[in-house]
Design a protein around this nucleic acid. Structure first.
Length: 578
RNA sequence: AGGCGAGUGGCGCAAUUGGCAGCGCAUCUGACUCUGGAUCAGAGGGUUCUAGGUUCGAAUCCUAGCUCGCCUGCCA
């Protein structure tokens, strides 16, 4: 059971005094007035027709978070009212993702399909009240008679059938006597309503094609969202039914259903869904990326899905922190991706063990170092966490450093290695570059350096300073790995910003994945388990790929870079010179 | 055009409900540093959509307007 979620805590979430959003204010008021008898019951109602993404995380954290803060509970309910679109495949995946995020629904796992019998009975009750009727109009005719934004619709010729006839026809709909699309059950509300959702909305439609993933072929009529959702909420005793802005127009219908049925009436509250720069969030577009092979799957590390983010190296803690920071409001907004990255860095900085890894190796021979000598030098696992301890890394005559850490002609403010310059090899020695070896094409292929034996461990007894400390890996001890560098999937902050006639696919970033092979890692990394994340010192956070990595054929994903002051300076320099 | 909703530094959110417009991210300085990371100190950045009005006082209240979002599935 879910003890964690039953326990009240501060309404502003963990970690201090974040402002209380408008939804929590409503709940605070309800608690004060005793409106729901002190109860807070929320729900997260995904349709099992796709994988969860970061936008769902916002909703999950809102619903489960509120329940936890107010000592209530949050239900996980699959909104499975359309067998044509839904699949069992997604149910387990969704449960797994919610759990991974750190939330627990306890025993409160539900399916809208659990309520099909009840919903049918309620529909009969509506018919008896004269509030619903069986309509024989075709989908096309329904569309034509609905009217427009400015003109009222016209009433269906079947609108005034007798209750008895409606009862009989509805029963025959259920019995499967009619073809798909032949008839619907409609609410009798108001064809002239300025709110189109109230123009005799369809409550039930006939779907015979694929069997339902849970009820099989028991039903061939299925309730529409606008009818199923309020009833599901009601049956579960939901107090606050939190959904996104586009359902605002549906609230009058939500209320109508509950009002007419005279059953528990939860309050629907709408908030703005999450948008992120450089990211598409709609299920349709995500599907398109997967189907079109633009990404390797739903768990591609460039996807904003929870599975993608997880594989990329994002932690549940970082995502929850992010969700807390973005707030909840009714304004359509686009959150800067950098905030997400900030949250990840902040989490990983405290927790990720450090390692040395050379992504673009440049061979360095320490000319005055004994040929066959190997020294194991002590390195700190995490400067932010003394309890993480230390480890030993091997040092020898031939090492690799990153190509970025050497410049034959150093630009101003570049203070890493260059001919004649001295730098510190982290945890090892000071070295000075004495010779640059090039191939026939003039490419630098090797550096020859001397080391100062007195600087063992990285400290100079004479107190002399070096401007830079760089990372390195002993050539003969190095583990090889493939490293995947990821960038935004799209080149524009708004992927939908495209010329007339083009789609968001036109903004796909051709460099969103760059694969580096023969990267050199310190030996300890060969042992790393899939899914664990390290900070490659001075470079970024990297996660062992949980799908493709094998012992002896390691694959790491870059979750996020470290902040890079030099990159900014360099960018400014190149901008100035051009 | 009809209905509903929303407009506060570049971005995301606050503002005890009429009382000095703040916070986070981002940006820029500087300090420190065996990660150009982290940390620390500081700075810049606002006609609170506009115009009127009420008031000693308006982001907040009133009026008019503007802009943006959503709504014409037998999807959710």
């Amino acid at each position: 059971m879910n003890d964690k979620a039953q326990e009240p805590c501060a309404p502003c979430g963990s970690g201090g005094s974040r402002p209380v959003d408008f939804i929590r204010k409503i709940i605070l008021d309800d608690m004060a007035s005793g409106k729901w008898g002190g109860k807070v019951i929320t729900r997260f109602p995904p349709e099992p027709n796709g994988y969860l993404h970061i936008g769902h995380a916002k909703s999950i954290c809102l619903n489960f978070g509120i329940a936890a803060e107010f000592g209530g509970r949050c239900h996980l309910r699959f909104d499975d009212t359309n067998p044509a679109k839904e699949d069992e495949e997604y149910v387990e995946a969704i449960k797994e993702d919610v759990r991974w995020l750190g939330w627990d629904w306890g025993e409160h796992l539900y399916y809208a399909s659990d309520y099909f019998d009840k919903m049918y009975e309620f529909a009969v009750a509506l018919i008896r009240k004269g509030k619903a009727y069986v309509c024989d109009l075709t989908p096309e005719e329904v569309r034509r008679t609905r009217g427009t934004l400015t003109e009222p619709g016209v009433e269906s010729p079947y609108r005034n059938r007798s209750i008895e006839e409606n009862l009989e026809l509805f029963e025959r709909m259920r019995a499967g006597e009619f073809e798909e699309g032949a008839r619907t059950l409609r609410a009798k509300i108001d064809m002239a309503s300025p709110n189109l959702n109230l123009r005799d909305p369809v409550l039930y439609r006939i779907i015979k094609a694929p069997p339902h993933h849970r009820t099989g072929t028991k039903w061939c009529i299925y309730p529409m969202y606008d009818y199923a959702h309020p009833i599901s909420d009601s049956l579960e005793g939901i107090t606050h039914s939190i959904c996104t802005l586009e359902f605002e127009d549906h609230r009058p219908l939500y209320d109508w259903v509950l009002e007419e049925l005279g059953i528990h009436h939860s309050q629907q509250i709408e908030f703005a869904r999450l948008n992120l720069t450089y990211t598409v969030m709609s299920k349709r577009k995500l599907h398109e990326l997967v189907r079109g092979g633009y990404v390797s799957g739903w768990d591609d590390p460039r996807m904003p899905t929870l599975r993608g983010l997880r594989r990329r190296g994002y932690t549940p803690e970082a995502i929850r922190d992010f969700c807390a920071r973005i707030g909840v409001a009714k304004t359509d907004s686009v959150v800067d991706y950098q905030l997400l990255e900030h949250c990840l860095r902040e989490d990983l900085n405290k927790r990720a063990p450090r390692a040395m890894a050379v992504l673009k190796p440049l061979r360095v021979v320490i000319t005055n170092y004994p040929d066959d000598q190997v020294e194991w030098l002590e390195a700190i696992n995490n400067p932010e966490d003394p309890s993480a301890g230390t480890r030993l890394v091997p040092f020898s005559k031939v090492i690799y450093i990153d190509q970025d850490d050497f410049r034959e002609v150093p630009p101003p403010k570049y203070y890493r290695l260059a001919p004649g310059r001295e730098v510190r090899l982290r945890y090892a020695y000071f070295i000075r570059c004495t010779e640059v070896v090039k191939d026939a094409a003039g490419n630098v292929v090797e550096l020859r350096c001397t080391y100062d034996p007195a600087t063992r461990g990285g400290n100079a007894p004479d107190g002399r300073k070096v401007k830079a400390t760089i990372h390195w890996v002993s050539a003969s001890h190095a583990a090889n790995a493939e490293v995947r560098l990821y960038e935004h999937l799209f080149t524009k902050p708004d992927p939908d910003d495209v010329p007339e006639g083009e789609t968001f696919l036109a903004n796909l970033n051709p460099n969103s994945l760059i694969v580096l092979r023969d990267c050199k890692l310190e030996p300890m990394l060969a042992e790393a388990h899939p899914g664990t994340t390290f900070q490659f010192e001075r470079v970024g956070y990297f996660c062992v790929d949980s799908v493709d990595s094998r012992p002896g054929a390691l694959v790491f994903n870059r979750a996020v870079t470290l902040k890079d002051q030099w990159a900014k300076i360099e960018k400014k320099l190149t901008e100035e010179s051009s």
